[in-house]
Design a protein around this nucleic acid. Structure first.
Lengths: 147, 147
DNA sequence: CCTATTCATCATATCATTATGACGAACTAA
DNA sequence: TTAGTTCGTCATAATGATATGATGAATAGG
C-alpha cells in the first residue's frame, strides 16, 4: 500500500469532517463508528492532527474535533505529511538529491514530483465531495476557538 | 518510503547482478557484503526470486545466483511485484475500480498509472547502468541451467 | 565416497505499526 | 460543586516487517 493505514485513517477522518453540515465539533466515537475505525487509535491520530494545527479539539460535553478551516483549503499533503514520508528516495537512501543521486533518482524524479503535486494540489473536500454519496456543498468557516 | 525495505534489497541485488561482468553465479555472501545487506535475509529474498523465475540459483561450489535473462530485459515490476503491492487503492480498500471506486479513485488513477508505467517500462539494467559508477556494457545471455 | 562449499530453512529475536482497555483531565451545564 | 461528557494518555497486546544464528541439504571436485 502506498499510504500507511494510519495516514488513510487520518485522510478519511478529515474527509468526513469536511462533509459535516452542522457547525461545531464532532465526537471521536461518531467518526470512529462511521468510518469503522478503532476508536482509541483514531483518537490518537486526531489528537496529533490537532497538535499540528489541522484540527481543533474541544473536551467536555458538545466537544469533539473539527477542521480549523474548510476542507476546500486543506491539501491532502497537510494531513498525510505527519504520518508518511512521501517523496523520499526510491531506493531508501537517507540523502538523495541532484548532487548525490541514487541510481534511480534521475528517472524517478518526474514520477515522484507528479505524486507530490497530487497531494499538494488536491483538497480533502475535493475527494470527499467527488466520491459516490459525497456532498458538494461549501462549508461555513467554523469559528476558531482558542485553546 | 514508497517501497518496502525488502523490495529495495531485491532491486539492488538484481541491479548488482545485472552488472556482474563474469558469466556464472554470484554467491549471496558476495552480494550481501557488496550491498551491506543482512546475509540470511537477502538469501530468503533471492530464494523467493528464484522460485518466481527471476533468478537461477545453484548450490555447492561455484554456486550462487544469476539473472535468468539480461537485466535489460527485466522490468523493475518483475522484481518488485513479489514483495510490494504497487497500484492498490490509495485509501486502502480491498476492491477499488471503475465500477466500485473509492473517493480518490478518479483523481488518483492518472498518477497511479504513471507510477505503474515507470516500474513496467524501466529495466534493472537501466537503473544499474544509469547511476554514478555504473556500467553501460551489454551482458551476454547466461546459459540457462535446468534445476 | 568424502569433504568443502554453497544455498535452504528453521527457530528465534527485534522493531515498528496497528490495536485494545483502563483511567485521568478538562469542560459544560445545572 | 457536582455529575456527566468527552478528549487525553498510559499500559499493554497483537501483528507484520526486518534481522540473526544455527543447522540441513544439495552439489562439485577430488
Amino acid at each position: 500500500m502506498i499510504l500507511s493505514q494510519t495516514a488513510v485513517y487520518a485522510l478519511r477522518a478529515t474527509m468526513y469532517l469536511s462533509q459535516v453540515r452542522e457547525v461545531g465539533p464532532t465526537r471521536v466515537d461518531v467518526i470512529a463508528n462511521e468510518l469503522k475505525v478503532p476508536r482509541n487509535y483514531l483518537s490518537k491520530i486526531l489528537h496529533l492532527l490537532a497538535r499540528e494545527g489541522v484540527l481543533d479539539s474541544t473536551r467536555g460535553p458538545h466537544g469533539g474535533f473539527q477542521l480549523v478551516r474548510p476542507g476546500t483549503q486543506i491539501a491532502l499533503e497537510t494531513v498525510v505529511e505527519h504520518f508518511d514520508d512521501l517523496g523520499g528516495c526510491l531506493l531508501g537512501r537517507d540523502s538523495c538529491d541532484e548532487s548525490n543521486p541514487c541510481a534511480a533518482h534521475g528517472r524517478w524524479k518526474n514520477i515522484s514530483e507528479s505524486v507530490l503535486r497530487f497531494f499538494r494540489e488536491t483538497s480533502i473536500a475535493e475527494l470527499a465531495g467527488g466520491g459516490p454519496g459525497g456532498f458538494l456543498v461549501e462549508l461555513p468557516i467554523p469559528a476558531k476557538t482558542p485553546r
